[in-house]
Design a binder for these strands. Structure first.
Length: 436
DNA sequence: TTAGGGTTAG
């Protein structure tokens, strides 16, 4: 396979910055870009006047792959007075490398000054390298030091929580949880994930799932780490149904996003995604999808249904009242709904995308175009003829259930051809047997 | 004015 090529022929600072931006992802993925990174570093070193910002970015570049990490260390020791940011870059890079903990620690100890970046790097370094108690000790030391109390934030706290979990130290974990609340740094997605993981492993699955719900309530999309936490909470507590529900929502989210790669211009792609968001209560995301469609000028075809009566085609939209016999149509549907309720039927409003009051939702769904067409068919055609309705989009689940019911009440055969297939409704049963 | 730090089953 052809590799993206990269050549260095840069002179100005802005060109060097641009070069770093382009080279960083390449080097991360592939050590064969190491020579290019070294050439860029050499060019940056010869730049006059020297720039601290640029040399720190070069440090970041070189430390992004184990192959050039020694170059980064050499560069650091060649700098006359490396600032706190230069040190932090290397401490974090060493902490990421498999055997770099001792060197990270040595460098941390040598630092003339430390800030919250330094502390979170050293705490997470120990947690990551299987030394959670040392990580907690660093966190406590940080809180004691004059420079350290200001360094206590979401980053250090999430590392400390993970360390308490790894150390199986329930008491430290609880203390940290209280501490985080007192400090007001508990409104953070990564802290939530760390807390969820901690409670899942403490055997408090309900508590763990609270954090998953926090993601949903706050309109944030749970990321892969949160999903892992929520699923393992379910696994530990034997919450099979809840676990499956979460699992399916992941699979649906992944599939819908893959659709954008394949068919970014197809309105159905957006509608599918919006439906999935709506089904898990992420109404902010539903609204976002709508806005994206609007900004791209992608419009969804409005749903319409039609029926041929007396050599004329009668077309209906949702909530349509323009038909001359609209009053009779709505009266008939209302009568049907009363009967349905008597039979214990409850409208399934999950098919409505908007986050509005429930009653309004029931009304929206109650007058979908296919029902209007079916109702018109009942009042406008003789009692023994089948009612044939067409719809440009797929029939909705609640309409499907309703038309089944209507076919039973009025004892008429109703045929609905939607964008996917034919549905033959007779005696309260559909030919698709509810599978379509 | 920039840049550097966090959470993870099986």
């Amino acid at each position: 396979m052809k590799r993206p090529s990269f050549s260095v022929s840069v002179t100005t600072a802005s060109q060097l910055h641009d070069g770093i931006d382009r080279l960083l992802p390449l080097l991360r993925a592939d050590a064969s870009h190491a020579p290019a990174a070294r050439a860029l570093a050499a060019a940056a070193a010869s730049l006059r006047p020297p720039s601290t910002f640029l040399s720190n970015r070069v440090l970041h570049l070189l430390s992004s792959h184990p192959a050039t990490l020694p170059d980064a260390l050499a560069l650091l020791s060649s700098l006359p007075s490396p600032d706190v940011c230069s040190y932090n870059t290397l401490v974090a890079a060493l902490a990421r490398s498999p055997r770099g903990l001792a060197s990270a620690r040595a460098l941390f100890d040598r630092m003339p000054l430390r800030d919250h970046f330094s502390w979170s790097a050293i705490v997470s370094a120990h947690a990551r390298h299987g030394q959670p108690r040392a990580a907690l000790a660093f966190y406590r030391r940080m809180l004691r030091e004059p420079e350290g109390s200001g360094a206590d934030n979401e980053f250090t706290a999430s590392s400390a929580l993970a360390a308490a979990t790894a150390a199986r130290c329930v008491r430290s974990g609880r203390e940290l949880h209280c501490h985080v609340i007192r400090r007001g740094i508990d409104a953070d997605a990564v802290v939530w994930s760390a807390l969820a993981d901690m409670y899942a492993k403490n055997g408090q699955s309900e508590e763990a799932l609270c954090y998953f719900n926090m993601f949903l309530r706050s309109g944030l999309r749970p990321d892969r780490v949160m999903f892992v936490g929520a699923l393992s909470a379910c696994a530990h507590a034997g919450l099979v149904d809840k676990g499956l529900e979460i699992f399916h929502s992941i699979k649906d989210e992944w599939a819908a996003e893959a659709l954008f790669e394949i068919e970014p211009e197809n309105p159905a792609t957006y509608v599918t995604l919006a439906n999935i968001y709506a089904s898990v209560g992420l109404f902010d995301e539903v609204e976002n999808v709508r806005k994206i469609m609007e900004s791209k000028g992608i419009t969804k075809m409005p749903a319409s249904s039609w029926i041929e009566v007396g050599k004329r085609v009668h077309v209906f939209l949702v909530g349509d009242k323009s038909h001359p016999r609209a009053e009779e149509i709505y009266a008939l549907l209302k009568k049907m709904y009363v009967k349905m309720r008597e039979e214990g039927y409850v409208a399934d409003i999950s098919f409505v995308l908007h986050d509005v009051e429930e009653e309004q939702e029931e009304q929206d769904i109650g007058y979908h175009s296919e029902r209007l067409a079916v109702a018109f068919g009942i009042i406008a055609t003789p009692g023994d003829a089948p009612i044939k309705v067409f719809k440009n989009l797929r029939i909705c689940g609640d309409c499907h259930a309703t038309i089944k019911f209507i076919s039973w009440i009025v004892q008429r055969e109703i045929i609905v051809r939607d964008s996917n297939r034919f549905h033959h409704f007779k005696n309260g049963i559909c030919s698709c047997r509810d599978y379509w």
